[in-house]
């Protein structure tokens, strides 16, 4: 019954608009806007909840209570924090490069929104089903580094610059394993369209066919989105807050929220590429597909948080060594093995 909730709503709205004789273009634009608003709402609400969840999870791991004052069990803590940051003065230091400095926090938030364009949230719930979805994901995620570099360089602060330099080094080295791991999935599915990839996992999820690829992807995405043990870009005890050092008030809050939305995207990508997307396991279709998607997303998020609270921050040279000397060769071998495997499989089949 819940399966067609959102799809049905969109369909009903379209028929109603069409029956009222609006211009077709008005109907299309209206529905597109509605989808954007829906995505933004999903993004913001989840990011707000994620910050709370992360703090609570950290508290569980460390045998503390965590936020517990604002609202029942402290659930409104992030809302209160955001409101506080809204009320704060946006302080602009004298020596910053004004335009890039002010543009960076705005741009950083556009990237996750752009990424949501191609994500299949449920059965028939793709904002825009691009046929180069995987390529699009890779391309847009790497743009984030440019924004961080903008923030770091324009801040005119050595800590910021160091953080930005680290983010570039991190992106350059971890982009390769990410792409190769994605490539192995694309080889299996035979398509770059995300909905095709999800459809290809109807029977067996790719995590079982590509366990090595999954591990590489899981680690490399963690590095891409700068979570512990790869949170060197921020490196709280070393370089204050990296590129965010000179930001205050809502500008900082935007960076902070973007960090968590990125984190969410990471989990969504793992879900879509390896955990079967919105496909229900064991044929349990009584739970709607979009709910399965969210459940899987939160499962992956929990895994990432677990990693975060049980590891420490590694050093830049160790991080680069790990990427170039371990992850990259392993992912190359994985691609080779996948190719040979697929070839043999087809030979036997036909």
């Amino acid at each position: 019954m819940g399966e067609n909730l959102f799809v049905g709503m969109a369909k009903g709205l379209r028929t109603w608009l069409e029956s009222n004789h609006f211009l077709p273009i008005v109907t299309d634009v209206f529905l597109m806007l509605l989808a954007v608003v829906g995505v933004l709402g999903f993004l913001f609400l989840n990011a707000l909840f994620l910050i709370y969840y992360d703090r609570k999870f950290g508290a569980w791991v460390q045998a503390r209570l965590g936020p517990n004052r604002v609202g029942p069990r402290g659930i409104f803590q992030t809302v209160a924090d955001t409101l506080k940051l809204f009320a704060k003065e946006i302080f602009i230091p004298n020596n910053v490069d004004r335009w890039p400095y002010l543009l960076a926090p705005v741009l950083i938030f556009t990237i996750p929104v752009m990424l949501f364009l191609v994500i299949p949230f449920g059965k028939g719930m793709v904002p825009y089903d691009l046929n180069l979805g995987v390529l699009y994901l890779v391309a847009v995620t790497s743009v984030e580094t440019i924004v961080l570099w903008m923030a770091g360089w324009s801040s005119n602060n050595k800590y910021s610059l160091l953080g930005a330099m680290r983010s570039v080094a991190q992106m350059l080295s971890y982009e390769m394993p990410v792409i190769f791991a994605m490539l192995s999935v694309v080889m299996m599915a035979g398509s770059m369209k995300l909905s095709d990839i999800v459809a290809a996992q109807q029977k067996v999820w790719f995590i079982f066919l590509q366990p090595v690829g999954f591990l590489i992807y899981f680690i490399a995405v963690n590095a891409e989105f700068k979570r512990t043990p790869f949170d060197l870009v921020e490196g709280e005890s070393e370089i204050i807050s990296g590129p965010y050092t000179e930001y205050s008030g809502m500008n900082f809050a935007l960076f902070f929220l973007a960090e968590y939305t990125n984190f969410m995207i990471g989990a969504i990508m793992v879900t879509t590429l390896f955990l079967g997307g919105w496909n229900a396991p064991f044929g349990w279709t009584f739970i709607p597909s979009w709910l399965w998607f969210i459940i899987k997303m939160y499962f992956v998020i929990t895994l990432y948080m677990w990693t975060r609270w049980t590891f420490l921050r590694i050093r830049i040279d160790q991080m680069l060594n790990f990427a170039w000397k371990f992850l990259l060769p392993v992912s190359l071998v994985n691609i080779f093995v996948t190719g040979v495997g697929l070839y043999l499989y087809r030979m036997i089949r036909w």
Binding site: G58, T228, S237, W309, L312, R313
Partner: peptide, 16 residues
């Protein structure tokens, strides 16, 4: 030391 290397869970454990 644990806090500085970013291992906050260990930091909390030692403080406990």
């Amino acid at each position: 030391l644990a806090h500085i290397i970013g291992f906050d869970s260990l930091f909390m454990h030692v403080m406990e």
